[in-house]
Amino acid sequence: MEFIILAIIALAAGVIGALVGLGGGIILVPATLFIGVNLGMISGITPQTVVGLSVIMMIFTGLGSTLSNMKTKTVDFRSGFIFFAGSIPGTLLGAFVNKGLDLPSFNLYFGILLILLSILLLVRNYLKPVSWFVKRGKTRDFTDESGTSYTYGYPVWFALLLTFGVGFASGLFGIGGGSIIVPAMILLFLFPPHVAVGTSMFMVFLSAIVNSITHISLGNVPWIYTIPVVPAAYIGAKLGTKLNQKMKSETLVFALRIILLLLGIRSIVDGIWG
């Protein structure tokens, strides 16, 4: 029964993560903690083991999505490597900080992050894109399948600083970081949405490899649970990428805002009174 539950969670995390460039950890972590700890349906789940499981899963969601996005040329590999370089030290720091968190503290901080992300997703369509960063960095041009042309770019120093913070959140909470970096890429660097998602998933793949090495060394990975999670997440990522290429993701993003807000509130309540 545990394997079936985890496979369903991982499939949903893979689909949603790849569709909007989140990586999937932001779905897997709270869902597994709630079902495993609050409902007692998955044994051996702690904040550390669920983060370890999440980062292993994100290797395969990132890989599956990147391979699919490569076919439509919506992965900016140069930017992906730059963002990855900035995230490495933050990821390592976050993983070691995670080691000292108990469940109430994890729930509290994770809940605050979820609410902040839901607000960011809520207001991103009402914010005017900022061209200041584009003008101060090396620019690139992209034309999508509909013929719409985009010019985007960023100063490398700011990208490295931003992705350090993204990496820290990824290592601490086992999330892919795409929920932070995708809105930033679109609003600050003027990335085309599909390129932002594709590049984010490539960064998720690279970061998850480093993140997983750290969590494996700390003994945080429940290997038995990777059996249902990895294949389900990989399949979900492939499906999510196909949906991303065929449909507008605004409906799902709207639903995701509400889900993140509710999960965040519940996580904070569990952290304070759980």
Rank of each mutant, 00 (worst) to 15 (best):
L63S: 05
G264F: 02
A196E: 10
R140I: 00
N98L: 04
N125K: 06
M1W: 14
I180D: 05
S68I: 09
L6S: 04
T66C: 08
T251H: 12
N244W: 11
I42V: 12
Y126L: 03
F164A: 04
L172D: 02
K71F: 11
A196F: 09
I213R: 00
G86T: 04
L172S: 01
V134I: 07
I115Y: 12
A232I: 10
T49V: 06
G44V: 05
P193W: 15
T163M: 03
I88S: 06
V29L: 01
A208E: 06
L33Y: 08
K71T: 06
L160E: 11
A7E: 13
S79G: 14
I186F: 12
N107K: 14
Q48A: 07
A232Q: 14
I213C: 06
V253Q: 15
S249L: 07
I5Q: 13
A232K: 12
L103P: 00
L172A: 01
R266Q: 12
L206I: 08
A95M: 01
A184Q: 02
V230K: 09
I227Q: 13
V269A: 12
G177E: 05
P89F: 10
D76S: 12
A159V: 05
I216L: 14
N220E: 05
D141E: 15
S87T: 07
G174K: 01
M1A: 11
Y154K: 10
A237D: 10
L239Q: 12
H194P: 00
L108D: 09
G14F: 11
E145P: 00
S217K: 10
S207C: 04
G198M: 14
L33K: 05
A233M: 11
G177S: 06
L262G: 07
